[in-house]
Design a binder for these strands. Structure first.
Lengths: 214, 214, 214, 214
DNA sequence: AATGAATGAGCATTCATTCAT
DNA sequence: CATGAATGAATGCTCATTCAT
């Protein structure tokens, strides 16, 4: 071996340091919210020091904003990998709902960050120019399905892609975001494996029926 | 007259002081979350002093818990006023959805408190014995609709009241809780008066179709 | 003895606590300037804690402002004790110069605070409504001397009280404020007891000659 | 041509870099004082980097000391250009006062640096061997005037050049250093163009009368 | 000669909470 | 029942300085 082993691998690799901070911050913010998160705790989750957080990100709120942006970017880019163009419209719609439902469940921290941001009334999202650029793709995909379905007669002509997206999002998001309060207040069996399969199917059917031409 | 005339009427009236604190705290917690809320700020919204908060409620977290309980109690009691027993099942269902959708919109602070509590993973709700007693009524009402509908053949026999309630809640809750992030990311017109009317109707149809016997 | 001796005499005496903080802060600010002063160090000079500084004064800059105000108030009130009305105008003028010269020497910390404030371009003084009220008295006294002197023919009719005050202040202030740099650069004997007596006399003569009717 | 063409001309030229740093530091120190000045801010005012400041000047305090020395050197060399030997003693004295008064007004940053150094009790000046060598010239000039005046009978025999210099300096320095506090406390009109002309004349007369043989 | 990255010690300030009357 | 005063333990952030190349 010619390589000298060093304890601090990332040294002199600013991008790695920043990525490391961002990841640690994402966890801390998702866990405790903007006000609840502790910069000291973020630093502790890091391979670097608190000082570097300020060196690269300025202050807590800027760091939070960048965490939020990064979370949106990552989630949207994963969604973009889903190719629905080869499926018949209603099959594509079902696949989209299933994917979205599952994807939300698999990204709890993203859900939590969005919840937290909504507690802050979307203030930081509104200040971010990136968000506007990264989100439209989600709508475009559903617009494509609607357009194809209206052409081949499988989807109603008066359907709104935005409304459809809203319904898919509401079910998929709420399913994760409110499972604590909902589970406590009502029925925890909804959040078992079987319960989740049923809610997933319920969501699929509700969305498809809302779109299908009678 | 049994009332002793005092200049400061609300003083010497522990219950009024407590109610005043609870109302002030509800606003502060709804606005800023559990960690974001400031005890000083709650005291400032109050007609009494910070010291009294500790006198009556012990600490910040206990106060928060009581605010949460009070919020649930109030909202559920308003819901209880809705009488659906005289309507045919599907009409009752529609009315229930409309009511729920509107009621959520009208109680933003309650929605915010529930969001906040979910950020805290329902920890305080789980510790509260009151919640379990106060919530089942919401399910009972929908169970009644389903039972009546299954009897008269208007509602499918395999429908689950819990799932139906979940779908109604998801749409109604998300519509309020996520309107900031959703509006910024996608389309703000969904949250205009017209947009809301359409989403309300979309929710009604989706729920009714999910329940209706084909 | 019926009185229990307590270590913290000033407890429950907010005004004493505030005065104690103000005195400690005056020393620290005079010694190190606004930026150089350390809140921890002020607290250490105090019989109370750092927390109380913030409790009563809000922040470092407000504390500094109040220290400045208090310093002006104290100095002006000491000056006010000087009664010159019974002396002939030129004798009164001499006595005023001597007093001012000595008073500046005796109040080095006040001089230092004023120097520091001038480094900050008088920003905090300008924000203080008190200063405008407390200072005019210094001018009024000299105006009175001039008026009396112009009446009895001992003082020139074109003399300006403001200019005279400026000259007295310049000599008296500079004598204290710049004695370090001046002593190092030129002659330290100016700042010995004898040297100071001569500078005091020089100032008296210069001011009197500037005012005396030829 | 002996000059090597480089894109970054001032680089590779250590003296230019140092001069650039010194100029930037002078401004920052004059503006904010020793403790108030920020090394980052000095670097930002520079055409080079923060690292170079430490490379060439060691630390903040050494840089400050050099700024101070440079300021004294520059001011004294400007003063040296004033040739008074051809004028009659009292005319020379008047010209010296006028020049000093004007020169102080024209070099506010120097005044500020001297104020700041006096706040630090002349500590850095005392450590600098250069100051002692550079300053005596100011005294020599006034000694020359006095000597000539005593010879021709226009200046009193008991006059002290050091005291005279002190009086000139006091008026000229205070006029700039304390114009903020003095203006706020008393009369801002003293610092208008007309006001300054009057104070300049007042200073001239006071100094000349102090020196003139009766 | 020159520099972007890194850092420890310190700094002003805030927060929930308790004391003493 | 009521309250102004008091407080320890953080908390976010800054500063002059040095490392590694």
């Amino acid at each position: 071996m010619t390589e000298t082993p060093t304890r601090k691998k990332w040294k002199q690799d600013p991008e790695a340091v920043q990525a490391n901070i961002l990841a640690a911050a994402a966890e801390e913010f998702a866990e405790h919210g903007l006000t609840g998160a502790r910069v000291d705790e973020i630093a502790a989750r890091t391979r670097t020091s608190k000082r570097m957080i300020y060196y690269y990100f300025g202050d807590k709120e800027s760091l939070y904003r960048q965490v939020l942006e990064e979370a949106y970017r990552k989630v949207r880019s994963e969604e973009a990998a889903l190719d629905l163009t080869s499926l018949p419209p209603l099959d594509a719609l079902r696949k989209l709902v299933e994917f979205t439902f599952d994807h939300h469940r698999a990204n709890e921290n993203f859900i939590r960050l969005v919840m937290i941001e909504n507690v802050h009334k979307g203030k930081h999202l509104a200040e971010s120019p990136l968000i506007a650029r990264v989100n439209p793709s989600a709508i475009e995909r559903i617009e494509d399905i609607c357009a194809r379905g209206q052409k081949d007669g499988s989807i109603r002509s008066d359907v709104s892609p935005h409304e459809l997206h809203w319904l898919i999002s509401a079910a998929s998001f709420f399913n994760v975001s409110n499972r604590f309060s909902f589970g406590i207040s009502f029925n925890k069996t909804l959040f078992t494996h079987d319960g989740q399969q049923k809610l997933r199917e319920l969501t699929c059917k509700a969305v498809i029926e809302a779109a299908r031409k009678p």
